[in-house]
Nucleic acid binder design. Structure first.
Length: 458
RNA sequence: GGCUAGGUGGCAGAAUGGUUAUGCAGCGGCCUGCAAAGCCGCGUAUGCCGGUUCGAUUCCGACCCUAGCCUCCA
C-alpha cells in the first residue's frame, strides 16, 4: 500500500515518501483571477483535491494553492472596466471559490495571494541580485539563466537550444535571450509597488517562488499544476527558488495534469469555445462535472464533448441507485475498498478506482443477503467519498427538482392519480400519466414497496 | 525544427508478454399489467510495417496520424 506518483522531473513513477516522516507539503498553482473559471481551471483543482484527500488519510498535509492577483491580464481587465485591480481580483476569486465548492473541492490549508507577499518577493529578488543570479537593466530585474546550470532540467530543454531557437523578439537589455523578468517597472497608470528598483510589479514566476518559500519552506514534497506550466513557469520557479536557497532542491515530486480540450480542439478565447464552470453547472450538478473530470487519468488529455456530462450523470445515477436500493449502510462503520485504494495509490488512477466503485455497486445490487448488501454499500460510500463523490443523500440526488420542471408536489399528485388508475386496472390512464411525467423529465419506478420517481439524466 | 504525450470495441476509458477492466449505448432473457430500476447472458477493439519471443495490443526499431509545449495560458 504505497503511493507512487509520476514525477515530471524524472519522467517515471516513483514511490512517494515525504521529506519529513509523517508530514507532507504540497503547492499547486491556482488561478489568475481575471475572469470566471473554466473547465480547464477546474481540472487541477479537482485532481489535486483528490490527492490531498488521499494524503490526509496518512499524513499531516499542508496544502497551499495560490491566487495570482498581480498580473497584466488583471490590469487589462481593470483598465477596461475602470476599476481598481483589487475589485477585479476580489470578484473573480469569489467566483472561483463558489465554483470550486460546487465541484466538491475542499479549500486548501493556505491560499496565499501575491498582493500579500510583496515583501517576500522583493526580499527574494534582492537575494538573487546579491548572489549574482539576477541583474538590473532599464528598471527591470532579470534572472540570469546562464547562472543556473540545471536550467531546463524539468522541461528537458537545452539552454543553448533555447537561446538559438528563441522565436520571440529579445528585449535589447537582456544579457541572455532566455533571461526572464523578476521585476518590471510600472508606468503611472499601472498598479505598482515601491521597491529598491523603483515603482513596479513582480513577474509572475517569482510570485509563486516567494509564496512557497514563505509558507512551505525551501524544499517541498509535491508541486502541481497544469502541464502547460512546465515551461516556462515551473522551470523558472525552480531556478529562482533553488538559487535563493543555496542550490537546495525545490520540489521533490512534480505533478502535471493534462489539458481539457473541447470537441477535439484546444479551448481558447479566440475560438470562443471556453467552457465556464458556472455555465456547465446550469447543465448538470457539480458532482457530475467532478466525475467527468475524474473519469480519465489526470495526466491524459480530456476531450470535453456534449456527451461527457450526461454520461457522467448516468454513471452517478447507477452508483447512487445502489445506495438507494440498499438499507442500513448508513449506520455501518466502513473503510474504503482495498482495490480502490490500490488504484489511487497507482499514480491516482481514478478511472480504475471508479471501476472498483461500479463493481461494488453491482455486487451490492446482486447480493440477496441484507447484511452483505449493507456492508458493500457502506464500503462503496466510504471509497467514493475519497474522490469527493456520493456525498449526497441518494434520494436527494434522484429527486432534485429541475428548476423549470414540475414541483415535487405536482409529481406526487400525478402519481396518486396513477395509483388510483392502476388500482382500477385502468392501465391506459395510468400509462398516459406516466408518459406525461416522462415528457416532463420524470421517470417512475414501480416496486413492491410502491412507486418512486426520479428526474432523468439529461 | 526541438521537446513531450498519445493512437484500445459504436462512444468514453483502464490494464496487460499468454485469460483484455469499467461505464454508456446495442441485443437476448428474468422481473413487471406494460415499463423503469436491478439482475443474468451476448456481441464488436488494441494505427501500419518489421524485429525479439513458444507467444506481443503490451518490449525494441522504422513509418503514418493526432494533440500539447517551445509565446500569456490550468
Amino acid at each position: 500500500m504505497t503511493l507512487s506518483l509520476y514525477n515530471t522531473l524524472t519522467r517515471q513513477k516513483e514511490p512517494f515518501a515525504p521529506l519529513q516522516p509523517g508530514r507532507v507539503t504540497m503547492y499547486v498553482c491556482g488561478p489568475t483571477v481575471y475572469s470566471f473559471p473554466h473547465i480547464g481551471n477546474a481540472r487541477p483543482a479537482v485532481v489535486f483535491d483528490v490527492l490531498a484527500r488521499l494524503l490526509r488519510t496518512r499524513y499531516q498535509l499542508t496544502y497551499a494553492r495560490n491566487i495570482t492577483d498581480i498580473d497584466d491580464k488583471i490590469n487589462r481587465a481593470a483598465a477596461e472596466e475602470g476599476v481598481p485591480i483589487g475589485e477585479i481580483a476580489a470578484r473573480y476569486a469569489k467566483a472561483y471559490h463558489a465554483d470550486m465548492r460546487a465541484l466538491g473541492v475542499l479549500p486548501p490549508d493556505i491560499e496565499p495571494r501575491a498582493t500579500e507577499h510583496l515583501a517576500s518577493i522583493i526580499r527574494m529578488i534582492s537575494g538573487l541580485i546579491d548572489s549574482g543570479h539576477a541583474y538590473t537593466a532599464e528598471g527591470h530585474v532579470l534572472f540570469r539563466v546562464a547562472s543556473y546550470a540545471d536550467y531546463g532540467a524539468l522541461s528537458r530543454r537545452d539552454q543553448r537550444e533555447l537561446l538559438a531557437g528563441a522565436r520571440v523578439e529579445v528585449a535589447p537589455y537582456k544579457e541572455g535571450a532566455g533571461d526572464f523578468v523578476l521585476w518590471k517597472p510600472s508606468t503611472p497608470d499601472l498598479p505598482g509597488w515601491d521597491s529598491p528598483w523603483g515603482r513596479g510589479r513582480p513577474g509572475w514566476h517569482i510570485e509563486c517562488s516567494a509564496m512557497v518559500a514563505e509558507h512551505l519552506g525551501p524544499t517541498i514534497d509535491i508541486h502541481g499544476g497544469g502541464n502547460d506550466l512546465i515551461f516556462p513557469h515551473h522551470e523558472n520557479e525552480i531556478a529562482q527558488s533553488s538559487c535563493s536557497n543555496g542550490g537546495a532542491l525545490f520540489a521533490r515530486y512534480w505533478l502535471h495534469n493534462g489539458f481539457v480540450n473541447v470537441d477535439h480542439t484546444k479551448m481558447s478565447k479566440s475560438l470562443g469555445n471556453v467552457l465556464l464552470v458556472r455555465n456547465l453547472l446550469e447543465q448538470a450538478p457539480g458532482e457530475a462535472i467532478r466525475l467527468a473530470l475524474l473519469a480519465a487519468h489526470y495526466r491524459q488529455p480530456l476531450d470535453w464533448t456534449s456527451e461527457v456530462l450526461p454520461e457522467a450523470q448516468r454513471k452517478l445515477d447507477r452508483l447512487y441507485g445502489a445506495l438507494r436500493d440498499v438499507e442500513g449502510w448508513q449506520a455501518l462503520e466502513a473503510g474504503p475498498d482495498a482495490a480502490f485504494i490500490a488504484a489511487l495509490d497507482d499514480d491516482l488512477n481514478t478511472p480504475q478506482a471508479l471501476a472498483v466503485l461500479f463493481n461494488l455497486a453491482r455486487d451490492a445490487n446482486r447480493s440477496t443477503d441484507p447484511a452483505e448488501r449493507a456492508a458493500l454499500a457502506a464500503r462503496l460510500r466510504a471509497s467514493a467519498v475519497l474522490l469527493g463523490l456520493l456525498g449526497a443523500d441518494p434520494d436527494a440526488w434522484f429527486m432534485t427538482e429541475v428548476s423549470d420542471g414540475l414541483t415535487a408536489e405536482q409529481i406526487e399528485t400525478m402519481l396518486a392519480a396513477r395509483r388510483a388508475a392502476r388500482t382500477d386496472r385502468d392501465f391506459r390512464l395510468a400509462d398516459q400519466i406516466r408518459d406525461e411525467l416522462v415528457e416532463a423529465g420524470i421517470l417512475i419506478e414501480d416496486s413492491a414497496e410502491g412507486t418512486r420517481w426520479r428526474r432523468s439524466a439529461g
